[in-house]
Design a protein around this nucleic acid. Structure first.
Lengths: 166, 166
DNA sequence: CAAATTAGTCACCAATCTTGACTGTCACGT
DNA sequence: ACGTGACAGTCAAGATTGGTGACTAATTTG
């Protein structure tokens, strides 16, 4: 798995080991380890031809299709990157490009049958991962955690947006 | 966040917008937006010569120094990557290599005065970010969230470790 | 002392990200 | 209707980044 690489792996900068790691370090750890588990499990289920970086597209697929530029916005990646990812996924048979009836400039990225199977598999794996955490933390506590994480992600994205503008 | 990346930015694969995004997508969003805000703020405070990828090293710096291979383990990056990052940070005057008195093979990566200032600045910025979230969610709720995130990161890293072995 | 391990580096290759320019298409104001 | 500006997507090139294997030096093992 990447990058990503997360890219690979930018993190925050405080972190004496003695103190609690900060939000950035924790987010990085969760992301990397979730990615690793998810794509390992996917590979075991036969989806062994996709890399974590393709997740930027796959994570935002919908049965009705989605525009490339919307994927770019949601994933924070450039349009060119999305384009090449879609190229790859198209060759691998996970998605296909269809013209958008509502806008002749745009093309909808639609999952194929294989793409749908992959979406279901990924959703199932992620559900299992989260249920495992919920079993340790407690169902109610995990739900509260997830809600808070959602909220933090929203808040932080607004702030990140502002500071990008600066 | 890179970078990137955070990679890119591999994410999970479920995500109809109608349902709540999964753990991987949320972690990616938090990581990317925190990185963006942190490094923007650092740049405004005069630390404009460091990129998010350098965070892999900076996040694990300690005043007493730390070995390159330990940074590699903590950050999940290869030794070579750490080596080149340390090269850069050394030229920029953030860290210096000192021989490890305990092992003549090893070199300790120690922050310079500027490195210490940067560490303090980063810690302060991250504190401000987290306090902002705490103000919205409530102090107690945010503390609970942070604790849960820590726990999830631990659990997930164990799982990720296992699946890497497979 | 010889063998196996570990820390760090060098050099090379592959993958990835970023930028700028370019073609169609849409939306808006006149 | 028409010109202007904005947006969707693609092409192509450059720079950055990441991964791999081999190598030296020092430590540990037996």
């Amino acid at each position: 798995m990447a990058r990503q690489t997360i890219a690979e792996t930018g993190e925050a900068l405080t972190g004496h080991q003695t103190t609690q790691p900060d939000l950035g370090v924790l987010a990085a750890r969760v992301l990397l380890s979730v990615q690793r588990e998810l794509f390992t499990a996917l590979a075991e289920q036969g989806f062994d031809d996709i890399a974590p970086r393709a997740g930027a597209v796959l994570a935002h697929l919908r049965t009705e299709g989605i525009r490339a530029s919307e994927v770019a916005r949601l994933s924070g990646q450039h349009k060119q990157v999305i384009g090449s990812l879609v190229d790859d996924l198209e060759h691998l048979g996970y998605v296909e490009r269809r013209p958008d009836p509502a806008d002749r400039r745009a093309k909808l990225i639609c999952p194929t049958e294989r793409g749908l199977l992959q979406m279901q598999a990924a959703a199932s794996i992620m559900r299992a991962i989260e249920e495992r955490h919920a079993a340790v933390l407690g169902t109610a506590e995990y739900a509260a955690f997830k809600t808070a994480l959602n909220r933090v992600a929203e808040l932080q994205q607004q702030a990140g947006h502002d500071s990008r503008t600066v």
